[in-house]
Design a protein around this nucleic acid. Structure first.
Length: 485
RNA sequence: GGCCUUAUCGUCUAACGGUUUAGGACGUGACCCUCUCAAGGUCGAAAUACGGGUUCGAUUCCCGUUAAGGCUACCA
């Protein structure tokens, strides 16, 4: 592979707290695109807004990406040849580049106060005009600007937008887009605190880091002209652009916290598998073009292509996520699933049983799990005798003769020379036969006696796994307990 | 308000002018399987926002309307 032509993409979140599911998708698409083309995926932290900085957010972001299996080749904690990967550590770079723009006449110092800016805006609003900076300082001479800076006056650096004309650019997903310069403000490049704005930093970094493709959310589409203009001012080649459709609430508004969880970690703590999450997120805006639905990360990277990314926003449909979660649980081996479940259990819940037994319980309950967590609530009776019995179940299944029947059944099981699934089943059916009742008259009460519930795995699998001793004990115990019913 | 973007079943989407009675999946309804619950299977209801063009032929191309979303900060 030719290094010159190697594809380099990046995910550039700002550390304002948690990783948003929309951010996860952006990261995922970038990652998949890089992997698919044998390129590099870079993580860059965009922390140029000091007021929005959140303690621990970077670590949290990194941790969540790693959980999802999105590994980056270069980033804050990994290093790389294009570092540093945190924008607050690159301030000199932005200032130097902004100065270059000033020197070339593509940008200028602006001394307008916040108060004046607000006043201008108020007037525009009152006159029902669209709000924009009135370019008050654009005509200041270099000499005057130098003088005011020297005298200690605060300023920002703004880029010059052409006064008329328009700019067209190509987006991989959206095709050709044209925006008139009249609609664009003389954007602030360097803020009065010396930090760059997003627009300057993103262009400088993407270029310096050799980014070939910018894949990001649609909310950036409108600011592309500013970026393209900056590339031109610097004499750089702009990367290929791809603006992803947004993720939506069920009511089609932009996905927000009010209508459900938006933090990836929330889904993680709820017990969604990373495989399900990745599979689901990948399909929000992309599909393989055929009818396959279940995908793992490596298949996704093999097949991912920007050509198959849609243009319209996608509702985050939790029902489908749930289904995918269930599918991925079923696809896990008992061993894998057990590894996920074990840490969730209280130490006493399964401590007295060996791993083989635990694994078998997992296997028996796997199909019934929507979340790994469900196992805890479902599996109690596999580890200790039930201490409560479903009232409605007792009422429904327990007849006056039932206790006697279960005692007989217990006797039969006890004397079974070989305690296997088929032996258990034929013993029970034979028993029912002798009692001249249908097997279900034994099956339902037996399940109740063994588990305290009316729902659960097949009775014979359960009986076998529980073992003769505890089955006999539980049958007799329940028979005694409910003999007066 | 202005600018930009988008528009196929409730939801995610397929169909890159004709192979389409618009396909699949989730959800939903019925049925089957069955010792319960799941799982699985079968069948069903369910969509091209609207109006104009272009074309022999439009879900697909163009225009308009409508609706939704994004942007409109010294936030990203």
């Amino acid at each position: 592979m030719n290094m010159e032509n190697q594809i380099r993409v990046r995910f550039a979140p700002s550390p304002t707290g948690y990783l948003h599911v929309g951010g996860l998708r952006t990261a995922l698409y970038n990652y998949l695109f890089a992997k698919h083309h044998g390129g590099k995926f870079i993580l860059r932290i965009e922390d140029t807004d000091q007021s929005r900085k959140v303690e621990g957010a970077v670590e949290n972001l990194i941790e969540t990406l790693k959980w999802a299996g999105i590994e980056y080749d270069e980033g804050p904690d990994r290093g790389g040849s294009a570092g540093p990967y945190i924008q607050s550590q690159r301030l000199d770079l932005y200032r130097a580049h902004a100065q270059e723009l000033v020197n070339q006449g593509h940008a200028y110092h602006c001394f307008c106060t916040t108060a004046r800016l607000q006043e201008v805006r108020q007037k525009q609003l009152a006159a029902k005009l669209s709000t924009s900076y009135d370019r008050h300082c654009r005509s200041l001479s270099r000499e005057e600007a130098e003088r005011r800076i020297a005298s200690g006056e605060k300023s920002v650096i703004r880029m010059k937008i052409p006064l008329d004309g328009e700019l067209s650019f190509e987006d991989v997903i959206r095709g050709s887009v044209t925006i008139s310069y009249k609609m664009i403000d003389d954007q602030v490049l360097i803020k009065s605190d010396g930090y760059p704005t997003y627009h300057l930093a993103v262009v400088v970094d993407d270029h310096l880091m050799g980014i070939t493709h910018v894949i990001r959310g649609e909310e950036w589409l409108s600011s592309v002209p500013k970026h393209i203009l900056l590339y031109r001012y610097f004499g750089w080649e702009a990367p290929v652009l791809a603006h992803l459709p947004l993720l939506l609430n069920p009511d089609k508004s932009k996905l927000s916290k009010r209508q459900g969880d938006v933090a990836v970690e929330d889904y993680r703590t709820k017990g969604y598998l990373k495989e399900a999450m990745v599979n689901f997120i990948a399909f929000l805006g992309w599909n393989p073009g055929d009818e396959r639905e279940i995908f793992f990360m490596d298949q996704l990277s093999q097949e991912f292509s920007l050509d198959r990314v849609g243009k319209s926003g996608a509702v985050f449909n939790i029902e489908k996520l749930n289904w995918l979660n269930q599918q991925h649980i079923k696809l896990k081996s008992n061993e894998e699933l057990a590894r996920l479940i074990k840490p969730l259990m209280l130490s006493g819940q399964s401590a007295d049983r060996d791993d083989q037994y635990f694994l078998k319980v997992v296997g028996l309950l796997k199909e019934r799990l929507n979340f790994p967590n469900d196992f805890i609530e479902m599996s109690g009776y596999f580890f200790q005798d039930p201490d409560s019995f479903d009232d409605a179940g007792v009422k429904k299944y327990w007849e006056p003769e039932t206790s006697g029947r279960l005692k007989l059944l217990a006797d039969r099981f006890e004397s079974l020379p070989e305690y296997s699934h088929s032996a258990i089943e034929s013993a029970l059916r034979q028993c029912a036969d002798e009692l001249q009742i249908k097997p279900t008259k034994l099956i339902h009460p037996a399940r109740l006696a063994l588990s305290g519930r009316t729902i659960g795995p097949g009775l014979f699998e359960m009986l076998e796994l529980l073992g003769k001793e505890s089955v006999v004990r539980r049958l007799r115990g329940a028979a005694e307990k409910f003999k007066g019913v």
